[in-house]
Simulated assay, not measured.
Amino acid sequence: MHTLESLLGALIEVSVPAFAIASMLSMGLRTPLRAFRDQMRDRRTVLAVLGANFVVVPAVGTLLVWLLNGLLPHHTGEGFVIALCAAGAPFVLQLGAMARIPYGETAGPMAVLLLGSIVFMPLVVPFLLQDVDVHGWAVAQLLLGTMLSPMVAGIVLGAVFPRRADQLARTAGSVAAVSAVLMFLSGFGANSALVLDLLLSPVLLVAAGLVAMAFLVGRFSGDLAGSTLTVPDGPAILTSQRNIAAALLVARTGTGPEDDGSIVLAILLLSAVGFVMLVPYALASGLVRRRRAGEATSLGVLLGVVGPKAD
């Protein structure tokens, strides 16, 4: 049993960066550089998205975690706080495709949030969690190497090989999907002794509440955004799906040997709850938008894996 848990622990060390690299490469291949330029010029949208993700959600979420800390077992609260500080999730791109949101409206703000997370997390997490020793430069290097660099490489490859960009993006997306499955299976498996304890506690309800709170904050920021955002609930999806890869990188570089794995498990649980809540919403809203536009509604189209990209 100990050997199996050790193997699963090693697997998560590989699957997390693989998920981040493949997701960001796929995003870069699908998104032209002009989409980023147009988004960066819309200062109103940039400020609204940054404020929602790096001010309101971490502040309100951390306050709620502190108030409910007595109900949360082990170090689950610390894991939630780390996840709330991590923005710019690569999976938002797939959720946006499901919801029929143009790639530029998810990829542009997500790139801003990714850069913000690289600066924000090493500076803020240590103040919120005194027990978590975050090595700022090490975390920044990991985020730059596993998320920002693949995104830039994808943009360059897409510009140099435009005819092959879509196929390469689909291949990278498939690798990201497999890596995500392995990431969750290995994460839960390596901490199997804690899973039952958490399921019997209010942890899932707290996680659902945090996701709902982030969604409402993001939806409000969408109303405050500028003209480059044509779908107002795009920022809601962007804000409520936290960056699990960045959160796990911070957690695994900041926790010591005394940690029992509950911080990592809490991050995975929050992401899983967000997935369960957001995927049905994205599918339903995407179905409505496609029917209104008179578009096809096959399974592949609804899942965002078939059809032309939207700039």
Rank of each mutant, 00 (worst) to 15 (best):
V65E: 01
W66A: 14
W66L: 13
L68T: 12
L68N: 10
G70D: 07
G70R: 03
L71Q: 11
L72M: 09
P73S: 04
H74T: 05
H74Q: 12
T76C: 12
E78V: 06
E78L: 10
E78C: 01
G79N: 07
A83K: 00
A83N: 02
A87Y: 05
G88K: 03
A89M: 13
P90I: 03
L93N: 11
Q94D: 00
Q94S: 10
L95K: 01
G96E: 09
G96R: 01
M98W: 01
R100V: 04
R100L: 10
P102G: 07
Y103G: 13
G104T: 06
T106E: 01
T106V: 15
T106M: 14
A107P: 00
A107M: 09
P109H: 03
M110P: 00
M110W: 02
V112N: 00
V112G: 00
V112W: 11
L113V: 05
L114M: 12
L115G: 15
L115Y: 04
G116H: 10
G116V: 10
S117A: 14
S117K: 03
V119W: 09
F120G: 04
M121R: 01
P122S: 10
L123F: 10
L123D: 00
L123S: 10
V124P: 08
V125N: 00
P126Y: 09
L128D: 07
L128E: 07
L128H: 04
D131Q: 13
D131T: 14
V134I: 15
V134W: 08
H135K: 15
H135V: 12
G136D: 10
G136A: 09
W137L: 12
A138L: 13
A140Q: 14
Q141T: 07
Q141K: 14
L142P: 00
L143P: 07
L143C: 05
L144C: 13
G145I: 03
G145T: 06
T146H: 11
M147H: 05
M147C: 10
S149W: 12
S149K: 08
P150A: 03
P150H: 04
P150D: 08
V152M: 09
V152Y: 01
A153K: 01
G154R: 09
I155Q: 12
L157H: 02
L157E: 03
G158M: 10
G158K: 08
F161I: 06
R164N: 09
R164V: 03
A165Q: 07
A165W: 04
D166G: 03
L168C: 08
R170H: 11
A172Y: 04
S174L: 12
V175E: 08
V175D: 07
V175S: 07
A176S: 15
A177T: 15
A177Q: 14
A177D: 13
V178Y: 13
V178N: 02
S179H: 04
A180Q: 13
A180S: 09
V181Y: 09
V181E: 01
L182G: 15
F184V: 11
L185D: 00
L185P: 02
L185T: 13
S186F: 06
S186Y: 05
F188R: 02
F188N: 04
G189L: 10
G189D: 02
A190R: 14
A190I: 02
S192P: 00
